[in-house]
Design a protein around this nucleic acid. Structure first.
Length: 898
DNA sequence: TTATACCCTCTGAAA
DNA sequence: GAGGGTATAA
């Protein structure tokens, strides 16, 4: 006799087990409690021989799957998913689509059939034909993936349920064995169960006489990962003869809170097929109506939240019983920082690798192998290791001049007697951390030694019992745990670790590390979490900021890789894209419903009314349905906090600075990166893909052409020789598919030569744009006469054009310089080697003017040393300064010459 | 009413 | 990089 209890999450399973063990140990002993995936793994292990797998097949996560496929990508005949700059990005998108297919128990062969059907039905509809083509490309990758997984006897998360489904549906023996084992089956949160899980369930319970499920269609917030919208509505179809009962008593919330989410449920699409919400409030009326507080800016919003949290804490509701819920992690991090600055303790890890105490360690770790010890810029901001910026620059400059080797920096003090005594001490203290270490050391051992022993962080943080220190302690614990479990492989261990961290952040695969360990429960701090994360939990007070347009509901972001038509169960008559889009609005409503219903006693909603550029921001469109139930304080209280740290650097320029248009372009993307790269000249190691290396070779060769063959054309043999030389030095010569890259690179060069052979070339003079605070020097790649006699200034790019490429500020600069030098008729032209096209630059007068002002503004800001941080999820993990970015050492610097 | 410019934002479980 | 919102110009 056994009862099978299936849940959607591990957390829920553990909680259930614990409670049951405490209340009814006998019943608990008769139960198998776990997730669908755990159950699936159990089946896979038990019947591994029937599946053709070893007894304990290895499970790979997405980042390992990407590594598995990365080398294959250039070989596959793909047209749409061919971002070779960063193959991991396209692979990640396609793997999402593949795991979505597995949620529907669809294999590569079936995927291809669906995609082929799309192609066959496209007819003369070009857009439909393109959608089909993309799906066919995913099918191809899917087939490759299946082949590689089978060859290595590997399985992924999707397989954990999909493989058992196929087995159970086709094998009567397996079915009978499972049926005999589980007389009763209970399923929690049925609305979040995906199609594969329903099929597994159906095969085991048959008509469902012994099946009992609980779910709420209004809390269906995991549709994007395969929870089928139709599961709840189709329950009676999937299990004929089902009886449906409604829960009528709410034991959690006061009546005022229940009234709000009941009112909202009336406006929800998910209510259409569900029973109307009719709940009695077990706790009755609490005399605390939910509030909606509207303030001016988003900063004010944080101040308003802080004020309410503090007020409630003083009224007797401890921080730990209050929660702040947000739709997105990015916004959550912002708010966490803001609340901490206002003296409110928060329980929030955020992105582990963006935390200052972790970045400190990563910067230190980079100094194990980086000969120029760029990590010093961050290391000397740690307490007891401080050194002024100017002296750090002196050390790094010295190492660079002397072509230092790894760890040479430890002796730099002796070589630089002019260094202040305090700096000598600071440097030797940093060097002490590296005593006895060598670059091939195990990063985990090294980091642990720093944290526990040499930096003494573990002790300091343990003794300080304030919430902030405890959060730091937890972050370090989490980080060290992560470092301990690293996949094995060749190369320098610390470099591999740092590269892996960049990749995890880039692909947002570091999410698992945001989870707080159980020991955090006891910390008295406000719980900050995403609404998804709050599922199944409850809090005395719930704060929901960001109730503005496109805050919640968020804008519909279709995945970059859309499933083929007919893949999603219950979406007949819709295209794959439509099936996903219709789900979005509904899911956002559910998200709000979940957030509202987390509150026991009180609910506070917040919004800002003005955005950064001064434009009005309207309240969320979810508000009208509940507005009549909300209190609207006239002038909500605000609790202000410490100002954000200044981001200006005192710089003395010995000469008037001169920049290039590319450098200005970089400032626009990230001022801080500009500071590190072009002012402090830190350089730093970049991880380059084979494709990037190929482009570097092309750029190298182009530079050579411009200097040696400015007005001539090289012979074929000379060109081939130079190419070969550059390829050996800088190309991806040792890559598995080096030949493919070499061929592409060579084609780009050949095209470049073709374009150069049109017309006679003359030497190109640099053009200059000047301001009081600095100049911009522009060196065009070519200058020629156009058909109408106007001057055409040319620029060559190795890539292909983007739709809005001319919005980039570098083209404005090029245009302004060309017009200044050659008059109003001058024209800028850009040649793209990859697409083999040349496009005249065009920009509206209005855009040109705003960008001209922007350029001027940038030159002024650089001069005055204004380099704010500008965290950007996609750019930062690729930035050479990723691990050092943040707080700067004190003091001013003098820039002699750029 | 329509086109354009610019700003803001981008979730995540499963062994 | 793209979708969606707000404001402004046409």
């Amino acid at each position: 006799m056994s009862i099978l209890v299936l849940t959607y999450s591990n957390k829920a399973a553990n909680e259930l087990s614990e409670r049951l063990a405490a209340n009814n140990p006998t019943a608990a002993a008769a139960m198998w409690i776990g997730t669908f995936h755990a159950f699936g793994l159990d089946i896979v292990r038990r019947f591994h021989d029937k599946l053709g797998l070893p007894p304990d097949p290895r499970l790979v996560d997405r980042s390992e799957a990407i590594e598995l496929l990365e080398d294959e990508l250039p070989r596959l005949p793909l047209r749409h998913y061919r971002n070779l700059w960063d193959p991991a990005l396209d692979l990640s998108d396609m793997l999402h689509a593949i795991s979505r297919a597995k949620d529907e128990v669809i294999d590569a062969a079936r995927y291809r059939t669906l995609a082929q059907a799309m192609a066959d039905n496209a007819g003369h509809d070009e857009e439909a034909a393109m959608r089909a083509e993309k799906c066919l490309e995913v099918a191809l990758l899917f087939e490759t993936y299946e082949r590689l997984m089978a060859a290595g006897h590997l399985i992924d998360f999707g397989d954990l349920v999909a493989l058992p489904v196929r087995l159970v549906e086709t094998d009567a023996e397996v079915r009978a064995a499972l049926k005999a084992r589980h007389q009763h089956v209970l399923v929690d949160e049925y609305q979040d169960v995906n199609r594969a899980s329903v099929r597994l369930l159906r095969a085991i319970v048959g008509d469902g006489r012994n099946l009992w499920v609980v779910g709420d269609a209004r809390q269906s917030i995991y549709r994007f990962r395969g929870a089928s919208a139709t599961n709840m509505a189709h329950f009676a179809v999937d299990f004929p003869g089902a009886q449906v009962r409604q829960l009528g008593v709410n034991y959690r919330s006061g009546r005022e809170v229940i009234e709000v989410f009941t009112a909202f449920s009336g406006a929800m699409k998910a209510s259409a097929g569900a029973l109307p919400l009719q709940l009695t409030a077990d706790r009755g009326v609490l005399n605390a109506r939910p509030e909606f507080r509207v303030v001016r800016s988003t900063e004010d919003e944080i101040s308003a939240v802080a004020a309410v949290i503090q007020e409630q804490q003083e009224a007797g509701i401890p921080y730990r019983r209050q929660a702040l819920l947000c739709a997105s992690n990015a916004r959550l991090s912002d708010i966490a920082e803001g609340l901490e600055a206002r003296g409110i303790p928060v329980l929030h890890l955020g992105s582990l690798f963006e935390r200052p105490e972790i970045k400190d360690l990563l910067a230190l770790l980079s100094m194990l192998t980086d000969p120029y010890a760029v990590g010093l810029v961050r290391a000397v901001t740690m307490s007891a290791h401080e050194m002024p910026l100017q002296e750090v620059m002196q050390i790094i400059g010295h190492l660079r001049e002397n072509k230092a080797a790894a760890l040479d920096w430890r002796q730099a003090g002796a070589e630089l007697p002019s260094l202040a005594t305090e700096s000598q001490t600071a440097l030797s203290r940093v060097a002490d951390l590296f005593t006895g270490l060598n670059p091939m050391g195990n990063p985990w051992t090294i980091l642990t030694m720093w944290v526990i022993d040499r930096l003494g962080l573990a002790k300091t943080l343990h003794l300080a019992r304030d919430p902030r220190s405890r959060m730091k302690g937890l972050a370090l614990w989490q980080f060290l745990n992560f470092c301990r479990r690293q996949p094995s492989g060749a190369g320098i261990p610390s470099v591999r670790l740092l590269d892996r961290i960049r990749r995890l952040v880039l692909l947002s695969e570091d999410r698992g590390l945001r989870q707080l360990p159980g020991v955090a429960e006891g910390i008295d701090a406000v719980r900050l979490m995403t609404i998804h994360g709050s599922k199944g939990l409850e809090f005395d007070i719930v704060h929901i900021p960001g109730m503005v347009t496109s805050g919640l509901p968020r804008n519909n972001m279709a995945p970059r890789c859309v499933p083929p038509d007919g893949l999603i169960h219950g979406s007949q008559g819709l295209t794959g894209l439509e099936a996903i889009k219709t789900g979005h609005d509904e899911e956002e409503e559910c998200l709000f419903f979940v957030a509202l219903s987390r509150a026991r006693d009180r609910l506070f909603l917040y919004a800002s009314s003005v955005q950064a550029d001064g434009k009005v921001r309207n309240p969320s469109k979810f508000i009208p349905a509940i507005n009549h139930l909300l209190v609207h304080p006239a002038n909500p209280a605000q609790r202000s906090g410490a100002a954000r740290p200044a981001t200006t650097v005192g710089i003395t320029w010995e000469e008037k600075p001169v920049w290039t248009e590319n450098q200005v372009n970089l400032f626009e993307r990230c001022p801080r990166r500009f500071l590190y790269t072009h002012v402090l000249k830190l350089g730093g190691r970049r991880t380059e893909t084979a494709f990037m290396k190929m482009h570097n070779v092309v750029s190298d060769l182009f530079d050579w052409l411009k200097t040696v063959h400015e007005t001539t054309t090289p012979s074929d043999s000379e060109l081939s020789f130079r190419f070969e030389e550059a390829w050996q030095a800088k190309g991806a010569a040792d890559h598995g598919y080096a030949e493919d890259y070499r061929r592409i690179g060579r084609r780009l060069i050949d095209y470049l030569i073709e374009t150069r052979s049109n017309g006679v070339r003359s030497p190109v003079a640099p053009l200059s744009l000047g301001w009081a605070e600095g100049d911009i020097l522009v060196k065009p790649d070519s200058v020629a006469r156009g058909e109408r006699g106007q001057v055409v200034v040319g620029r060559v790019k190795t890539g292909k054009p983007r739709s809005n490429a001319f919005d980039d500020i570098e083209y404005t600069i090029l245009h302004l310089a060309a017009v200044q030098a050659y008059g109003g008729q001058a024209q800028v032209e850009v040649t793209y080697l990859t697409s083999e096209t040349t496009e005249p630059m065009s920009i509206s007068a209005k855009k040109l003017e705003t960008r001209r002002q922007k350029v001027q503004n940038i030159v002024q800001r650089v001069r005055s040393g204004d380099f704010p941080l500008q965290a950007e999820a996609r750019a930062c993990p690729r930035c050479p300064s990723f691990f050092i970015c943040g707080e700067l050492p004190d003091g001013a610097v003098t820039i002699k010459k750029l």
